[in-house]
Amino acid sequence: MSRTTTIPGHTAEAQRGDGSLPGTSVEPALDARTPAVTPQTPLRFGYGTNGLADLRLDDALTLLADLGYDGVGLTLDHMHLDPLAPDLGARTARLAQRLDALGLDVTVETGARYVLDPRRKHGPSLLDPDPDDRARRVDLLIRAVRVATDLGAHAVHCFSGITPPGTDPSTAWHRLTDALTPVLDAATTAGIPLAVEPEPGHLLATLADFHRLRRTLGDPEHLGLTLDIGHCQCLEPLSPADCIRAAAPWLRHVQIEDMSRGVHEHLPFGDGEIDFPPVLAALAASGYQGLTVVELPRHSHAGPHFAAHSLPFLRTAEATATRSPVLVPPHGDPSATPEGSTS
């Protein structure tokens, strides 16, 4: 998901690493200067269809195959495999055949802005006060699990949503865990990981929040993590490379783009502050087997251009990571949101 947000509480000094906040621990603790490990196997890169929204889905898939991508992050939306339109099963079967013909793997993403409500961005969410509205989001996620099963996807992505005004954190967490339970049941039956994404400004905003959810639900096998590398740069206390190492046991989906400290804005590679060779070295050494998907939904107007430029950038950074180990400096900046916060 992409939006431009300046994270509250980040003074200029804090953004340089001079401050800290309680409640921002990430499991497990790591040495802040960990040598990068030479990658064992090549990474597999994809591009998100939410960054190609002006293209027909088949045109987008053909473009990505022609450019040499390994797969696609498929956002279920009205323009690309509408999950609410008739004959979803038949349309999904045709898409599975097309992906196979193009040699593209897939992750199913559920961050469409207005797929459920034409007036509320990302509404309704899993945290809505109205149980019928929460049920609509649950239904969408279960549909996504079915689509992922039919496509042979390696994960289904989701996020918590923003805490509604007037809702206390305890109530919001209760709604989240209740709503995710039937989705996890469906994912478990299908054998597909449900990969929850910490999203700046949401109830579940940080890696610490993910661990709270995991513990509350009893650490279910099919509950995993979507790690957005830009979000790590934006607000996590660890560097993006150290976030990968800390998150490795739960990593089921990865999104990647550039970003600057304290500002939630997805940027093309080279326009932010991330040093990518250590990030890709850590990812390759983590044992992660899925797609690493470029996430640039705000740049959809020039999607073919950014798709064409992103893959060479990532491959060059990956090659740089294999040539020489890089010491990762400490990040030193606090998380903008303590565990459970909605700011």
Rank of each mutant, 00 (worst) to 15 (best):
D105P: 03
V106S: 02
T107H: 08
V108R: 00
E109W: 07
T110R: 00
G111H: 01
A112S: 15
R113P: 00
Y114R: 14
Y114F: 15
D117S: 13
R120W: 12
R120C: 09
H122N: 10
G123T: 07
S125N: 04
S125L: 04
P129I: 12
P129W: 15
P129H: 15
P131C: 13
P131M: 13
D133G: 08
R134T: 11
R134E: 06
R134F: 03
A135N: 14
R137C: 03
R137N: 04
R137L: 02
V138N: 06
V138H: 04
D139T: 15
D139Q: 14
R143S: 10
A148C: 13
T149D: 13
D150S: 15
L151S: 09
L151V: 12
G152A: 06
A153I: 12
H154R: 11
F159A: 14
S160A: 15
S160E: 05
S160T: 12
I162E: 06
I162M: 10
P164W: 06
P164Q: 05
P164H: 11
P165M: 08
D168T: 05
D168A: 12
P169D: 11
S170H: 14
H174I: 12
R175I: 03
R175N: 07
L176E: 00
L176M: 12
L176I: 05
L176K: 01
T177Q: 11
A179I: 02
T181N: 11
T181W: 07
L184E: 06
L184D: 04
D185N: 11
D185H: 14
D185S: 14
